[in-house]
Design a binder for these strands. Structure first.
Length: 434
DNA sequence: TTTTGAGTTGTTCGA
DNA sequence: GTCGAACAACTCAAA
């Protein structure tokens, strides 16, 4: 049996400019690429129509074809990650394993277990930074502690940035080093893992120069196609963060800031993993959420009586996407107007958003609820009507998602704004003063 | 150690 | 219609 190394695809589903893959291809050993559909993750997804699984499946299928063209193959397994790894290590003479870092608590646990299994089998485990520009403790305060406020973090981030950190890893040059196989195996149908083809529309893995250049001017208007729609590609690594950061740096600082926010929240989740389950600021755990299930249902279904909120939720339910400005409005509405625990909203977004990423979703919800690292002050309550006047003046976005709007008498608001605002301020004040 | 300036995205009120 | 202050104080980060 031949000595090989294994490259494990996770949330880095691309062949080009992939750090760990580049190092695997340069390791001197033939590279066997693998992907595992993790049954413990897939079993938690209620919707067997989940478009994100289809997105992964489609990209795996594409990678497998590419690798087959190169005379190699992609080993695709479904099951328990530990068992799959034990089988791989049994079936092949694996000397090295290459992966890219993942920063989510569950993924860290999983990777530690796999690392042990790999080491026990006598192989080396190598992990690399790939999904962000700066990770973990690369951007810290002068005293060595992690930042908890975005602006100084971003200043240090920009000061540290240079071409080295944005260099690409040209894996293409070494494609000859993939493990060669006589015949590649066909990919099993998606039904094998309990899901179905969705025929979903996915955003393209590219963004026009025009959108980035005008980002700062247009990003706040949900009726305008002024945002990148790259979230899903960042989530699954079908594009390179370094490549897009180079683009951002040359074209638009506001968009660069958005990429820095992404690094920031990944760093926060890594440094303060408790945020995944509870408020960053622990005094916010004392707020008495009303948690009215009927109202939560109305919010989910886009039936709050506030057109901008309802339009946003309809967009989310129909497409798996929601414009960023509207995400803030609906999140503020749920946590502040309805006084529903931000975790309910976070979980709903997690279920519905194609671009769902734990770190950013959690950071955004905690920001909106006021309990996060760099939170909006709690008295900052979005007024849905005023937000509409500012950002969807002609009701273009609203009409797109609520076709009846303007032709029917719109349902009465679930709660009156001034009343809800005052109630929110009181409840927060009371919770925080305990 | 102390001081100082600042902190993603807002709203309301009153002049 | 426009503008500044109040909203609530507190913590963070750096000098």
């Amino acid at each position: 049996m031949k000595d090989i190394c294994v490259f494990w695809f996770r949330r880095d589903l691309r062949l080009s400019d992939n750090c760990a893959l580049f190092h695997a291809l340069n390791s001197g050993l033939p590279v066997l690429p693998i992907f595992i559909f993790d049954e413990t993750i897939l079993e938690k997804l209620e919707d067997k129509n989940d478009k994100r699984v289809d997105f992964i499946y489609q990209n795996i299928s594409y990678l497998k074809n590419k690798l087959t063209e190169l005379g190699s193959d992609l080993i695709v397994e479904y099951g328990n990650v530990e068992e799959v790894w034990k089988n791989i290590l049994h079936d092949y003479q694996v000397k090295k394993v290459f992966v890219n870092h993942d920063y989510e608590p569950d993924a860290i646990n999983r990777d530690n277990i796999v690392k042990d299994i790999v080491n026990t089998a006598g192989a080396h485990y190598h992990s690399f930074k790939d999904q962000c520009v700066f990770e973990k403790d690369e951007i810290v305060k002068d005293d060595g502690k992690p930042y908890t406020v975005f602006t100084p973090y971003s200043k240090k981030w920009k000061a540290k940035l240079d071409d080295f950190y944005l260099r690409s890893f040209p894996s293409e040059k070494y494609f000859n080093n993939f493990f060669k196989v006589e015949n590649s195996t066909p990919l099993f149908p998606i039904e094998r893992i309990g899901f179905i083809k969705t025929n979903a529309f996915f955003p393209v893995a590219d963004v026009s120069k025009n959108i980035i250049q005008n980002y700062s001017l247009q990003r706040d208007f949900p009726a305008i196609n002024g945002t990148s729609h790259l979230g899903i590609h960042f989530r699954f690594g079908t594009i390179s963060i370094r490549e897009k950061a180079r683009l951002a740096k040359s074209l638009n600082e506001t968009w660069l800031n958005e990429l820095i926010w992404r690094d920031f929240y990944m760093m926060i989740l890594f440094q303060f993993p408790h945020v995944a389950k509870s408020a960053f600021k622990k005094e916010y755990e004392q707020i008495s959420w009303r948690n009215n299930e009927e109202e939560f249902y109305c919010w989910c279904e886009g039936k709050t009586g506030y057109p901008i909120v309802d339009a946003g939720m309809r967009e989310l339910n129909e497409t798996g996407f929601m414009h960023n400005r509207v995400r803030m409005i609906v999140a503020s509405f749920l946590s502040k107007h309805l006084l529903i625990d931000w975790r309910w909203g976070e979980a709903y977004f997690a279920k519905k958003l194609l671009d769902f990423d734990l770190s950013a979703n959690n950071g955004g919800w905690q920001w909106a609820a006021g309990c996060g690292t760099d939170a909006a002050p709690y008295f900052r309550v979005f007024n849905p009507t005023l937000q509409t006047e500012k950002f969807d003046k002609n009701f273009e976005y609203i009409k797109k998602w609520l076709p009846d709007f303007g032709t029917i008498v719109y349902p009465k608001p679930i709660v009156e704004h001034i009343f809800a605002r005052n109630r929110c301020l009181e409840v927060y004040k009371k919770g925080l003063s305990r």
